[in-house]
């Protein structure tokens, strides 16, 4: 796709998203909110995986930190912005803290630690009744009004709340686009390609990894803190490792080497899930099988496959070249 076509595509997509509540049913609008939330989470995850080469199996933990923090704030102070910002900040802080314990390790070790820390957050959500409500979770969370510069916007309907989520998502995705194309983004890709070389061109590899992990945590947290006003409840399963699989799969599905990959993946995943769970409760079975199939057969994801068709695969290569470094 050339630049102009891409701009038209983005404009068209944005227009469709803006018009959606007017033309689609409430349920579809609700589903698209979920697509946007997963897209936010996956875009953050791909800064970590596609750009920096680090895998995290614990993003659900940061999602939950965002969700629970936002829920607690809204229960005490029913105003949307403090809730969402507070949730995002708390998730970023958690990622910074846990990340600083993990970034010095090899990539394999790092992935292992993310799973363990994710489950730590899950066990907190489950057991720390006083704060999280234990297995009952938190209920009765208000869809608090948006208060901005003295302006108070009530959000009684899903459609109105949809626009809040849409604005947040568009801003966050646009911001990520800048980050990816900035010198920082280039430096992260250098770290991904070769840690040793990156260190020897003067890049502080640990700090860059920590930055990527914290930003990914913040994105997961933003997605998470937009959830309680929609659902009015928060329960521990959102922190479980099976939930961490969703941004991973969305990103793999869409394609890790393309900025739009996680967005496309989030769309396909939420749509597919909505259909599949009507037929079976064994969603994880499908999820797992698809992950295995993607890893074995389609490491470029949908975007990669599409590109292979249109550009004859000139640029889609496995990551094999980068493999040598980690050693065994």
């Amino acid at each position: 796709m050339n630049d102009l076509a891409r701009r038209w595509a983005v404009a068209g997509l944005l227009l469709a998203l803006v018009l959606l509540p007017a033309v689609a049913s409430r349920y579809v609008t609700y589903l698209v909110i979920h697509i946007l939330l997963l897209a936010l989470n996956a875009v953050g995850f791909n800064l970590l995986f596609g750009q920096t080469g680090l895998l995290s199996f614990g993003q659900a933990g940061f999602y939950a930190v965002g969700a629970y923090t936002c829920a607690r704030i809204l229960l005490a102070w029913p105003s949307l912005l403090p809730g969402v910002l507070g949730g995002t900040a708390a998730a970023a802080l958690a990622a910074l803290l846990l990340g600083s314990l993990s970034v010095r390790h090899t990539r394999i070790y790092f992935a292992m630690l993310t799973l363990a820390f994710g489950m730590m957050i899950f066990s907190l959500a489950w057991k720390w009744r006083a704060v999280t409500g234990g297995d009952d979770g938190l209920v009765g969370i208000p869809r608090a009004p948006l208060e901005l510069f003295g302006l108070v916007v009530a959000l009684p309907t899903v459609e109105r709340y949809y626009y809040v989520v849409l604005v947040a998502a568009v801003l966050a995705v646009a911001l990520m686009h800048r980050v990816v194309h900035s010198p920082l983004g280039l430096a992260l890709r250098a770290v991904r390609d070769s840690e040793v070389r990156a260190e020897h061109v003067g890049l502080n590899v640990r700090r860059l990894r920590l930055v990527a992990f914290t930003v990914a945590g913040a994105y997961a947290g933003l997605a998470g803190s937009l959830l309680p006003p929609l659902e009015n409840t928060v329960t521990p399963p959102i922190a479980h490792w099976t939930a961490s699989a969703e941004p991973v799969l969305a990103t793999l599905l869409g394609g890790i080497r393309h900025f739009a990959g996680p967005l496309v993946g989030a769309f396909v995943l939420v749509a597919a899930k909505d259909v599949i769970v009507r037929f079976t409760v064994h969603w994880s079975l499908v999820l797992g099988a698809v992950v295995v199939a993607l890893v074995l057969g389609f490491r470029g994801g949908l975007a990669g496959a599409l590109e292979a068709l249109t550009v004859r695969g000139a640029r889609v290569r496995p990551v094999s070249a980068a493999a040598g470094e980690e050693g065994r």
């Binding site: 990539r107 992935a111 699989a245 969603w283 079975l285 797992g288 099988a289 295995v292 890893v295 990551v319």
Partner: peptide
């Protein structure tokens, strides 16, 4: 290949086998 793919694969297996 990049060791990430082995991690992803075995992670997918966890989802699959548990379910």
């Amino acid at each position: 290949l990049d060791p990430s793919y082995q991690l992803l694969l075995t992670f997918g297996l966890v989802l699959f086998l548990d379910d």
